[in-house]
């Protein structure tokens, strides 16, 4: 293996480490934002007045329903379940510059499962409502469950991406192990 290859590898490691630090900061800020948003929504939902104070747009914004408190709690748990493994992964990458480890693959896998649950959660709630109050065997009711305003395709897309990356990281870990053993 020529020295140029080793030099390029070192440069790529350093670059990944730098990018990992920036990504870590952004991920922590996103997590903090999600927590603050959750706390605001819960306190607002608990204190929400029954009627609009006046006809202003601001009053309407304040009246927006954020969903029930249990729904908010489940969402924040799943969001934490996604962001904490990602933050641990980025911390690992920012320290060592080596992304491919079995541990990182497992973290990606957990984050992917949490994203999938986050995507399917509204569908589950709707389905439970349909069983309790409506006809769940009606095909048009079932078709409603896969509408974009119910099934979150963005979260589902991230779920698939993270699960794929989990497999990719495990493959990369096998290659990394081979590389280390060769050296």
């Amino acid at each position: 293996m020529d020295k140029n290859h080793d030099a390029r590898k070192q440069q790529t490691n350093a670059s990944i480490r730098r990018s990992g630090k920036i990504a870590l900061v952004i991920a922590i800020l996103i997590l903090l934002g999600q927590i603050i948003s959750f706390l605001y929504k819960v306190t607002f939902t608990l204190r929400r007045p029954d009627t609009l104070e006046d006809e202003s747009f601001l009053s309407y914004l304040n009246y927006i329903r954020y969903g029930t408190v249990p729904d908010l709690i489940v969402r924040i748990i799943l969001t934490l379940g996604t962001m904490i493994p990602v933050i641990l992964l980025l911390r690992d990458i920012s320290r060592k510059g080596l992304p491919f480890t079995i541990q990182n693959g497992t973290r990606m896998f957990i984050a992917g499962i949490m994203q999938g649950l986050l995507a399917l959660l509204p569908v589950l709630f709707q389905f439970v409502q349909m069983i309790r109050y409506g006809d769940s065997s009606d095909s048009s009711s079932l078709a409603y469950l896969i509408q974009p305003n119910v099934l979150n395709y963005l979260n589902l897309s991230f779920c698939f991406l993270l699960l794929f990356l989990a497999g990719l990281f495990r493959y990369g870990a096998a290659l990394q192990q081979e590389s280390d053993e060769t050296l």
Binding site: L168, L175, E178
Partner: peptide, 27 residues
Amino acid sequence: LLEGFLMLFIAQILHYGTMLQLESDET
């Protein structure tokens, strides 16, 4: 914007993976 930077970060990691793959194939 975040998704764009995420993709570029993943591309960097994939690039490192191609180097490991090259080492493995040559070994």
